[in-house]
């Protein structure tokens, strides 16, 4: 059973057609790498999944439930979008940690705000808050930042900030974790520590969609590769199929440019 199905997804910015009908599905526990040139629409596709952009057309289905349908106005309300987007976690290229909070509080803030809406919050406040804090600490430890828990973002390196951002996204236990070029804003010597964390998540069969320019990483870590070209899926398959035996000439050309240097 597919955990995620995207059906005929289109997105226009004014008269510019960025996504021209995207169809794909993802199985639970799979890691999908999205590759493609700048402007091919990969980031827009990821942002559509997270409702940061509203698709012009199409459907998004998670666990056989339609969570977005461009033709159905009922699924477009603010509160509903807020609930639906929690199926997806998001790790940004530029980290976007909250500067006024410690690494730990960055992770726990959203969960604390949600907990306050629980009817039993007042009577169990201490217990609930302690649980959330413990969970945050465990996740930061799992990304190797136990010692940096009480540091503020500006006291952390880019690689450390991005690992906090991954822990923050995992706190909400999303069905699908999305990465938007997670290492593009990092110095080369810092990409390794972030890729290692993502690799660890893949080993534990976290369902992920990763937009990346790291071709070697995409080939090693992903179960499926999706090559986007000018707003359409040019190639979709296992890393072996896409990287070793591309069917399309444009895939071949794109990969050649990447691997020649």
């Amino acid at each position: 059973m597919s955990i995620l199905e995207v059906k005929n997804l289109k997105k226009n910015f004014g008269s510019l057609e960025v996504l021209k009908g995207i169809d794909f599905s993802l199985e639970k526990g799979e890691a999908l790498a999205m590759i493609g040139a700048s402007g091919s629409g990969k980031t827009t596709l990821l942002r559509c999944l997270n409702f940061l952009e509203r698709p012009t057309h199409g459907q998004i289905i998670v666990n056989n439930k339609v969570i977005f349908d461009a033709d159905d106005n009922k699924s477009l309300g603010d509160a509903q979008i807020r609930k639906n987007r929690l199926h997806f976690g998001m790790v940004f290229q530029s980290f976007n940690l909250f500067p006024q909070y410690t690494a730990l509080r960055n992770c726990t803030l959203a969960r604390e705000l949600m907990a306050k809406e629980r009817p039993d919050f007042k009577e169990n406040k201490k217990k609930i808050m302690d649980e959330i804090t413990a969970e945050g600490e465990a996740l930061l430890e799992s990304v190797g930042l136990k010692e940096k828990m009480n540091y503020y973002p500006h006291q952390l390196s880019g690689g450390q900030q991005q690992r906090v951002a991954i822990a923050r996204a995992l706190m909400l236990q999303p069905d699908i974790l999305c990465f938007d070029e997670p290492t593009s804003a990092l110095d080369p010597e810092l990409t390794g520590e972030v890729l290692k964390v993502i690799r660890g998540l893949a080993d534990r069969h976290t369902t992920m969609v990763i937009v990346t320019h790291e071709m070697k990483f995409a080939r090693d870590v992903s179960d499926k590769v999706l090559f986007l070209d000018q707003g359409t899926i040019a190639e979709y398959g296992t890393p072996e199929q896409v990287f070793e035996h591309p069917k399309e000439e444009r895939t071949r050309q794109f990969l050649e440019r990447y691997f020649e240097d």
């Binding site: 997270n50 409702f51 940061l52 807020r82 609930k83 987007r85 929690l86 997806f88 976690g89 998001m90 940004f92 530029s94 976007n96 940690l97 909250f98 803030l109 959203a110 705000l113 949600m114 923050r168 996204a169 909400l172």
Partner: peptide, 22 residues
């Protein structure tokens, strides 16, 4: 930055929470 609002949004926060907490 727009990223601060977006980070709040993808964490399921309301507009009010984003404004006051972030």
């Amino acid at each position: 930055s727009k990223g601060q609002y977006e980070a709040g949004q993808v964490l399921g926060m309301t507009k009010t929470q984003i404004f006051f907490k972030i």
